[in-house]
Design a protein around this nucleic acid. Structure first.
Lengths: 187, 187
DNA sequence: ATAATCTTTTTACATAAGTTAAAAAATCAT
DNA sequence: ATGATTTTTTAACTTATGTAAAAAGATTAT
Protein backbone atom coordinates (compact mmCIF):
# COMPACT_ATOMS: atom_id res chain seq x y z
CA UNK A 1 0.00 0.00 0.00
CA UNK A 2 1.25 3.47 -0.91
CA UNK A 3 2.51 5.94 1.67
CA UNK A 4 0.92 8.80 -0.28
CA UNK A 5 -1.54 9.60 2.48
CA UNK A 6 0.95 9.02 5.26
CA UNK A 7 3.44 11.48 3.78
CA UNK A 8 0.67 13.92 2.97
CA UNK A 9 -0.56 13.87 6.57
CA UNK A 10 2.97 14.51 7.78
CA UNK A 11 2.97 17.73 5.79
CA UNK A 12 -0.59 18.77 6.57
CA UNK A 13 -3.24 16.50 8.15
CA UNK A 14 -6.47 15.92 6.25
CA UNK A 15 -9.98 15.75 7.64
CA UNK A 16 -11.40 12.21 7.69
CA UNK A 17 -13.81 13.04 4.84
CA UNK A 18 -11.03 14.51 2.72
CA UNK A 19 -8.86 11.48 3.35
CA UNK A 20 -11.60 9.10 2.33
CA UNK A 21 -12.37 11.14 -0.75
CA UNK A 22 -8.72 11.26 -1.73
CA UNK A 23 -8.16 7.57 -1.18
CA UNK A 24 -10.92 6.69 -3.64
CA UNK A 25 -9.22 8.71 -6.36
CA UNK A 26 -5.62 7.52 -6.10
CA UNK A 27 -4.34 5.24 -8.83
CA UNK A 28 -1.15 3.20 -8.90
CA UNK A 29 1.08 3.59 -11.95
CA UNK A 30 4.30 1.73 -12.66
CA UNK A 31 7.09 2.67 -15.07
CA UNK A 32 9.94 0.58 -16.38
CA UNK A 33 13.50 1.81 -16.29
CA UNK A 34 14.00 4.24 -19.16
CA UNK A 35 10.29 4.72 -19.72
CA UNK A 36 9.00 8.23 -20.34
CA UNK A 37 6.58 9.41 -17.67
CA UNK A 38 5.81 12.75 -19.23
CA UNK A 39 7.22 13.84 -22.54
CA UNK A 40 7.89 17.27 -23.97
CA UNK A 41 4.78 19.12 -25.19
CA UNK A 42 2.59 16.73 -23.25
CA UNK A 43 0.27 18.22 -20.62
CA UNK A 44 1.05 16.71 -17.24
CA UNK A 45 -2.21 15.35 -15.89
CA UNK A 46 -1.03 13.94 -12.60
CA UNK A 47 0.45 14.67 -9.25
CA UNK A 48 2.71 11.70 -8.58
CA UNK A 49 3.99 10.17 -5.39
CA UNK A 50 6.97 7.84 -5.68
CA UNK A 51 6.57 4.65 -3.73
CA UNK A 52 9.70 3.12 -5.15
CA UNK A 53 12.26 4.09 -7.76
CA UNK A 54 13.98 7.13 -9.17
CA UNK A 55 13.02 9.69 -11.75
CA UNK A 56 14.80 12.47 -13.60
CA UNK A 57 13.19 15.68 -14.71
CA UNK A 58 15.11 17.43 -17.49
CA UNK A 59 15.19 19.19 -20.83
CA UNK A 60 17.40 19.42 -23.92
CA UNK A 61 19.16 22.48 -25.15
CA UNK A 62 21.67 22.47 -27.98
CA UNK A 63 22.73 18.86 -27.57
CA UNK A 64 23.16 19.20 -23.87
CA UNK A 65 20.86 17.82 -21.21
CA UNK A 66 19.95 19.82 -18.14
CA UNK A 67 18.45 18.02 -15.19
CA UNK A 68 16.23 20.15 -13.03
CA UNK A 69 15.62 17.59 -10.35
CA UNK A 70 15.75 13.99 -9.31
CA UNK A 71 12.81 12.52 -7.42
CA UNK A 72 13.00 9.35 -5.36
CA UNK A 73 11.06 7.42 -2.71
CA UNK A 74 8.44 9.28 -0.68
CA UNK A 75 8.57 12.41 -2.78
CA UNK A 76 5.70 14.09 -4.52
CA UNK A 77 6.42 15.31 -8.00
CA UNK A 78 4.72 16.77 -11.00
CA UNK A 79 5.61 19.09 -13.88
CA UNK A 80 4.88 22.23 -11.94
CA UNK A 81 3.71 24.67 -14.56
CA UNK A 82 2.25 22.08 -16.89
CA UNK A 83 0.20 20.54 -14.08
CA UNK A 84 -0.86 23.85 -12.57
CA UNK A 85 -1.88 25.55 -15.78
CA UNK A 86 -2.59 22.43 -17.82
CA UNK A 87 -0.25 23.64 -20.54
CA UNK A 88 2.26 21.62 -22.58
CA UNK A 89 5.38 20.70 -20.66
CA UNK A 90 8.74 22.11 -21.61
CA UNK A 91 10.38 19.31 -19.65
CA UNK A 92 10.73 15.58 -19.87
CA UNK A 93 10.35 13.10 -17.05
CA UNK A 94 11.72 9.59 -17.31
CA UNK A 95 12.29 6.69 -14.93
CA UNK A 96 15.94 6.02 -14.12
CA UNK A 97 14.96 2.81 -12.36
CA UNK A 98 11.84 0.67 -12.34
CA UNK A 99 9.49 3.03 -10.56
CA UNK A 100 6.18 2.60 -8.79
CA UNK A 101 4.05 5.65 -8.27
CA UNK A 102 0.66 6.59 -6.93
CA UNK A 103 -1.01 9.25 -9.04
CA UNK A 104 -3.78 11.78 -8.59
CA UNK A 105 -5.43 13.28 -11.67
CA UNK A 106 -5.43 17.03 -12.07
CA UNK A 107 -9.23 17.12 -12.21
CA UNK A 108 -9.38 15.17 -8.96
CA UNK A 109 -6.75 17.43 -7.47
CA UNK A 110 -8.82 20.52 -8.28
CA UNK A 111 -12.04 18.93 -7.02
CA UNK A 112 -10.38 17.94 -3.76
CA UNK A 113 -9.03 21.46 -3.36
CA UNK A 114 -12.49 22.88 -3.83
CA UNK A 115 -14.35 20.38 -1.67
CA UNK A 116 -11.99 20.11 1.26
CA UNK A 117 -10.35 23.05 2.96
CA UNK A 118 -7.86 20.66 4.59
CA UNK A 119 -6.77 19.34 1.19
CA UNK A 120 -6.38 22.88 -0.10
CA UNK A 121 -4.14 23.55 2.89
CA UNK A 122 -2.04 20.54 2.00
CA UNK A 123 -1.78 21.81 -1.56
CA UNK A 124 -0.74 25.26 -0.38
CA UNK A 125 2.02 23.80 1.78
CA UNK A 126 3.14 21.45 -0.98
CA UNK A 127 3.59 24.31 -3.43
CA UNK A 128 5.22 26.49 -0.82
CA UNK A 129 7.72 23.69 -0.28
CA UNK A 130 8.26 23.33 -4.00
CA UNK A 131 8.90 27.06 -4.28
CA UNK A 132 11.41 26.91 -1.43
CA UNK A 133 13.18 23.90 -2.89
CA UNK A 134 13.48 25.68 -6.21
CA UNK A 135 14.79 28.81 -4.55
CA UNK A 136 17.42 26.76 -2.79
CA UNK A 137 18.37 25.28 -6.13
CA UNK A 138 18.82 28.75 -7.61
CA UNK A 139 21.10 29.62 -4.72
CA UNK A 140 23.11 26.46 -5.27
CA UNK A 141 23.52 27.27 -8.94
CA UNK A 142 24.91 30.68 -8.10
CA UNK A 143 27.64 29.13 -6.00
CA UNK A 144 29.22 28.59 -9.30
CA UNK A 145 32.55 26.91 -8.61
CA UNK A 146 32.00 23.42 -9.87
CA UNK A 147 33.97 21.80 -7.09
CA UNK A 148 31.68 23.33 -4.52
CA UNK A 149 28.59 22.46 -6.52
CA UNK A 150 29.66 18.85 -6.45
CA UNK A 151 30.62 18.92 -2.78
CA UNK A 152 27.21 20.35 -1.97
CA UNK A 153 25.51 17.76 -4.11
CA UNK A 154 27.12 14.77 -2.46
CA UNK A 155 26.32 16.23 0.94
CA UNK A 156 22.65 16.69 0.08
CA UNK A 157 22.16 13.61 -2.09
CA UNK A 158 24.35 11.02 -0.51
CA UNK A 159 21.58 8.43 -0.64
CA UNK A 160 21.34 8.79 -4.41
CA UNK A 161 25.05 8.79 -5.24
CA UNK A 162 25.44 5.15 -6.16
CA UNK A 163 22.16 5.14 -8.05
CA UNK A 164 23.15 7.92 -10.43
CA UNK A 165 25.51 8.00 -13.40
CA UNK A 166 28.17 10.70 -13.33
CA UNK A 167 26.81 12.07 -16.58
CA UNK A 168 23.47 12.70 -14.92
CA UNK A 169 25.07 14.37 -11.94
CA UNK A 170 27.01 16.62 -14.28
CA UNK A 171 23.81 17.47 -16.13
CA UNK A 172 22.20 18.31 -12.83
CA UNK A 173 25.08 20.56 -11.86
CA UNK A 174 25.15 22.19 -15.27
CA UNK A 175 28.74 21.18 -15.99
CA UNK A 176 30.30 18.76 -18.44
CA UNK A 177 31.09 15.23 -17.43
CA UNK A 178 34.74 15.91 -18.14
CA UNK A 179 34.75 18.73 -15.66
CA UNK A 180 33.07 16.57 -13.06
CA UNK A 181 35.60 13.84 -13.61
CA UNK A 182 38.43 16.34 -13.16
CA UNK A 183 36.92 17.54 -9.90
CA UNK A 184 36.63 14.03 -8.58
CA UNK A 185 40.22 13.21 -9.39
CA UNK A 186 41.51 16.32 -7.66
CA UNK A 187 41.00 15.16 -4.11
CA UNK B 1 -5.41 52.99 -2.06
CA UNK B 2 -3.44 49.80 -2.57
CA UNK B 3 -4.17 47.35 -5.37
CA UNK B 4 -3.36 44.43 -3.07
CA UNK B 5 -6.92 43.12 -3.11
CA UNK B 6 -7.44 43.88 -6.78
CA UNK B 7 -4.36 41.89 -7.80
CA UNK B 8 -5.24 39.14 -5.38
CA UNK B 9 -8.73 38.79 -6.83
CA UNK B 10 -7.23 38.57 -10.30
CA UNK B 11 -5.30 35.52 -9.21
CA UNK B 12 -8.06 33.94 -7.14
CA UNK B 13 -11.26 35.70 -6.06
CA UNK B 14 -12.07 35.95 -2.36
CA UNK B 15 -15.40 35.52 -0.67
CA UNK B 16 -16.87 38.81 0.59
CA UNK B 17 -16.20 37.84 4.21
CA UNK B 18 -12.60 36.90 3.46
CA UNK B 19 -12.10 40.16 1.62
CA UNK B 20 -13.45 42.20 4.49
CA UNK B 21 -11.36 40.26 6.99
CA UNK B 22 -8.23 40.74 4.92
CA UNK B 23 -8.80 44.42 4.35
CA UNK B 24 -8.88 45.06 8.09
CA UNK B 25 -5.46 43.48 8.50
CA UNK B 26 -3.47 45.15 5.73
CA UNK B 27 -0.95 47.78 6.74
CA UNK B 28 0.92 50.24 4.53
CA UNK B 29 4.70 50.35 4.89
CA UNK B 30 7.07 52.69 3.08
CA UNK B 31 10.82 52.32 2.55
CA UNK B 32 13.34 54.87 1.43
CA UNK B 33 15.78 54.13 -1.38
CA UNK B 34 18.58 51.98 0.01
CA UNK B 35 16.64 51.03 3.13
CA UNK B 36 16.76 47.42 4.29
CA UNK B 37 13.37 45.75 4.23
CA UNK B 38 14.50 42.43 5.63
CA UNK B 39 18.04 41.76 6.71
CA UNK B 40 20.02 38.56 6.94
CA UNK B 41 19.16 36.37 9.94
CA UNK B 42 15.95 38.30 10.44
CA UNK B 43 12.69 36.34 10.33
CA UNK B 44 10.47 37.71 7.59
CA UNK B 45 7.14 38.52 9.22
CA UNK B 46 5.26 39.87 6.24
CA UNK B 47 3.84 39.14 2.86
CA UNK B 48 4.38 42.35 0.93
CA UNK B 49 2.65 43.84 -2.06
CA UNK B 50 4.46 46.58 -3.92
CA UNK B 51 2.30 49.56 -4.71
CA UNK B 52 5.19 51.60 -6.01
CA UNK B 53 8.93 51.16 -6.26
CA UNK B 54 11.53 48.49 -6.80
CA UNK B 55 13.20 46.00 -4.51
CA UNK B 56 16.14 43.62 -4.79
CA UNK B 57 16.37 40.29 -3.04
CA UNK B 58 19.93 39.01 -2.75
CA UNK B 59 22.72 37.49 -0.70
CA UNK B 60 26.48 37.77 -0.31
CA UNK B 61 28.99 35.07 -0.99
CA UNK B 62 32.72 35.63 -0.96
CA UNK B 63 32.61 39.33 -1.78
CA UNK B 64 30.18 38.82 -4.62
CA UNK B 65 26.51 39.67 -4.58
CA UNK B 66 23.91 37.38 -6.08
CA UNK B 67 20.48 38.76 -6.80
CA UNK B 68 17.71 36.20 -6.71
CA UNK B 69 14.96 38.46 -7.88
CA UNK B 70 13.77 41.98 -8.43
CA UNK B 71 10.24 42.88 -7.41
CA UNK B 72 8.37 45.91 -8.72
CA UNK B 73 4.87 47.37 -8.93
CA UNK B 74 1.91 45.04 -8.43
CA UNK B 75 4.01 42.10 -7.34
CA UNK B 76 3.66 40.15 -4.14
CA UNK B 77 6.89 39.27 -2.45
CA UNK B 78 8.23 37.77 0.72
CA UNK B 79 11.26 35.79 1.83
CA UNK B 80 9.79 32.45 0.88
CA UNK B 81 11.31 30.05 3.34
CA UNK B 82 11.73 32.55 6.13
CA UNK B 83 8.09 33.61 5.89
CA UNK B 84 6.74 30.09 5.46
CA UNK B 85 8.71 28.47 8.24
CA UNK B 86 9.32 31.59 10.33
CA UNK B 87 13.04 30.91 10.32
CA UNK B 88 15.91 33.38 9.94
CA UNK B 89 16.40 34.61 6.41
CA UNK B 90 19.51 33.75 4.43
CA UNK B 91 18.70 36.62 2.09
CA UNK B 92 18.58 40.36 2.22
CA UNK B 93 15.89 42.59 0.78
CA UNK B 94 16.47 46.28 0.15
CA UNK B 95 14.67 49.05 -1.67
CA UNK B 96 16.34 50.18 -4.89
CA UNK B 97 13.94 53.10 -5.13
CA UNK B 98 11.59 54.77 -2.68
CA UNK B 99 9.07 52.00 -2.26
CA UNK B 100 5.52 51.85 -0.94
CA UNK B 101 4.18 48.50 0.11
CA UNK B 102 1.11 47.00 1.67
CA UNK B 103 1.96 44.27 4.16
CA UNK B 104 0.17 41.35 5.76
CA UNK B 105 1.59 39.84 8.94
CA UNK B 106 2.42 36.15 8.97
CA UNK B 107 0.06 35.54 11.89
CA UNK B 108 -2.74 37.23 9.96
CA UNK B 109 -1.83 35.27 6.86
CA UNK B 110 -2.14 32.00 8.76
CA UNK B 111 -5.40 33.02 10.42
CA UNK B 112 -6.88 34.02 7.08
CA UNK B 113 -5.79 30.71 5.58
CA UNK B 114 -7.51 28.85 8.39
CA UNK B 115 -10.68 30.91 8.49
CA UNK B 116 -11.36 31.33 4.79
CA UNK B 117 -11.14 28.56 2.25
CA UNK B 118 -11.07 31.15 -0.52
CA UNK B 119 -8.02 32.83 1.00
CA UNK B 120 -6.30 29.48 1.33
CA UNK B 121 -6.96 28.93 -2.36
CA UNK B 122 -5.35 32.27 -3.14
CA UNK B 123 -2.36 31.27 -1.04
CA UNK B 124 -2.07 27.94 -2.84
CA UNK B 125 -2.08 29.63 -6.21
CA UNK B 126 0.35 32.29 -5.07
CA UNK B 127 2.88 29.69 -3.95
CA UNK B 128 2.32 27.59 -7.04
CA UNK B 129 3.16 30.67 -9.07
CA UNK B 130 6.24 31.33 -6.97
CA UNK B 131 7.38 27.76 -7.51
CA UNK B 132 6.88 28.08 -11.26
CA UNK B 133 8.69 31.41 -11.42
CA UNK B 134 11.61 29.89 -9.55
CA UNK B 135 11.68 26.88 -11.83
CA UNK B 136 11.78 29.16 -14.82
CA UNK B 137 14.69 30.97 -13.21
CA UNK B 138 16.56 27.69 -12.79
CA UNK B 139 16.02 26.99 -16.47
CA UNK B 140 17.31 30.43 -17.40
CA UNK B 141 20.42 29.92 -15.31
CA UNK B 142 21.18 26.69 -17.12
CA UNK B 143 21.16 28.48 -20.46
CA UNK B 144 24.56 29.47 -19.37
CA UNK B 145 25.99 31.54 -22.20
CA UNK B 146 26.08 35.00 -20.75
CA UNK B 147 25.09 36.70 -23.96
CA UNK B 148 21.88 34.69 -24.06
CA UNK B 149 21.24 35.25 -20.39
CA UNK B 150 21.37 38.96 -21.01
CA UNK B 151 19.29 38.80 -24.17
CA UNK B 152 16.67 36.85 -22.26
CA UNK B 153 16.78 39.30 -19.41
CA UNK B 154 16.18 42.38 -21.51
CA UNK B 155 13.34 40.61 -23.26
CA UNK B 156 11.65 39.69 -20.00
CA UNK B 157 12.49 42.79 -18.00
CA UNK B 158 12.36 45.55 -20.50
CA UNK B 159 10.29 47.73 -18.21
CA UNK B 160 13.00 47.58 -15.54
CA UNK B 161 16.02 48.16 -17.76
CA UNK B 162 16.42 51.87 -17.22
CA UNK B 163 15.71 51.55 -13.52
CA UNK B 164 18.53 49.11 -12.84
CA UNK B 165 22.29 49.57 -12.61
CA UNK B 166 24.37 47.29 -14.82
CA UNK B 167 26.10 45.94 -11.75
CA UNK B 168 22.77 44.73 -10.39
CA UNK B 169 21.81 43.13 -13.67
CA UNK B 170 25.16 41.32 -13.70
CA UNK B 171 24.57 40.14 -10.13
CA UNK B 172 21.19 38.87 -11.19
CA UNK B 173 22.66 36.98 -14.12
CA UNK B 174 25.48 35.59 -12.00
CA UNK B 175 28.21 37.17 -14.12
CA UNK B 176 30.68 39.97 -13.50
CA UNK B 177 29.95 43.49 -14.55
CA UNK B 178 32.98 43.35 -16.84
CA UNK B 179 31.51 40.39 -18.68
CA UNK B 180 28.19 42.14 -19.01
CA UNK B 181 29.90 45.22 -20.37
CA UNK B 182 31.74 43.09 -22.90
CA UNK B 183 28.50 41.49 -24.04
CA UNK B 184 26.86 44.85 -24.49
CA UNK B 185 29.71 46.21 -26.57
CA UNK B 186 29.67 43.20 -28.87
CA UNK B 187 26.50 44.10 -30.75
C1' DA C 1 30.51 75.94 -13.74
C1' DT C 2 33.37 72.97 -11.15
C1' DA C 3 34.48 69.40 -8.33
C1' DA C 4 33.29 65.11 -6.39
C1' DT C 5 31.06 60.88 -6.78
C1' DC C 6 29.09 57.14 -9.09
C1' DT C 7 28.63 54.16 -13.16
C1' DT C 8 30.26 51.93 -17.21
C1' DT C 9 33.78 50.53 -20.37
C1' DT C 10 38.26 49.00 -21.60
C1' DT C 11 42.73 46.61 -21.11
C1' DA C 12 45.86 42.96 -19.57
C1' DC C 13 46.37 38.79 -17.54
C1' DA C 14 45.30 34.22 -15.37
C1' DT C 15 42.40 30.35 -15.04
C1' DA C 16 38.36 27.36 -15.01
C1' DA C 17 35.80 24.79 -17.94
C1' DG C 18 34.03 23.38 -22.62
C1' DT C 19 35.03 20.28 -26.80
C1' DT C 20 36.87 16.42 -29.02
C1' DA C 21 39.07 12.22 -29.01
C1' DA C 22 41.13 8.34 -27.10
C1' DA C 23 42.27 5.27 -23.34
C1' DA C 24 40.99 2.87 -19.24
C1' DA C 25 37.68 0.79 -16.28
C1' DA C 26 33.39 -1.18 -15.20
C1' DT C 27 29.14 -3.46 -16.37
C1' DC C 28 26.24 -6.49 -19.03
C1' DA C 29 24.83 -10.22 -22.10
C1' DT C 30 25.61 -14.50 -24.27
C1' DA D 1 34.76 -16.57 -19.28
C1' DT D 2 34.64 -13.68 -23.33
C1' DG D 3 33.32 -10.11 -26.03
C1' DA D 4 30.37 -6.05 -26.43
C1' DT D 5 28.65 -2.07 -24.50
C1' DT D 6 28.53 1.50 -21.26
C1' DT D 7 30.70 4.54 -18.10
C1' DT D 8 34.53 7.14 -16.40
C1' DT D 9 39.00 9.16 -16.79
C1' DT D 10 42.73 11.44 -19.11
C1' DA D 11 44.99 14.48 -22.54
C1' DA D 12 45.39 18.43 -25.78
C1' DC D 13 43.59 22.47 -27.13
C1' DT D 14 40.55 26.66 -27.18
C1' DT D 15 37.69 30.03 -25.25
C1' DA D 16 34.85 32.55 -22.04
C1' DT D 17 35.00 34.90 -17.91
C1' DG D 18 36.84 36.50 -13.47
C1' DT D 19 40.09 39.94 -11.21
C1' DA D 20 42.40 44.17 -10.88
C1' DA D 21 43.26 48.61 -12.34
C1' DA D 22 42.68 52.47 -15.08
C1' DA D 23 40.10 55.39 -18.25
C1' DA D 24 35.94 57.36 -19.84
C1' DG D 25 31.40 58.90 -19.18
C1' DA D 26 27.34 60.39 -16.27
C1' DT D 27 25.25 62.25 -12.44
C1' DT D 28 24.87 65.05 -8.33
C1' DA D 29 25.95 68.64 -5.12
C1' DT D 30 27.87 72.96 -3.90
Amino acid sequence: MSDFIKQLNLLSPLSPEAEEDLLARLKPMAFKKGQVINKEEQICKKLFFIDKGLVKHYYHQKDRIFILKFFAENQFFTVLDSFTNQTPSKFITIALEDTETTGLDHTDFIELCEKHHSFETFARKLFAMAAIVNLKRIKEMFDAESAELYAEFIKENNHLLNRLKLGDIASYLGISQVTLSRIRSKK
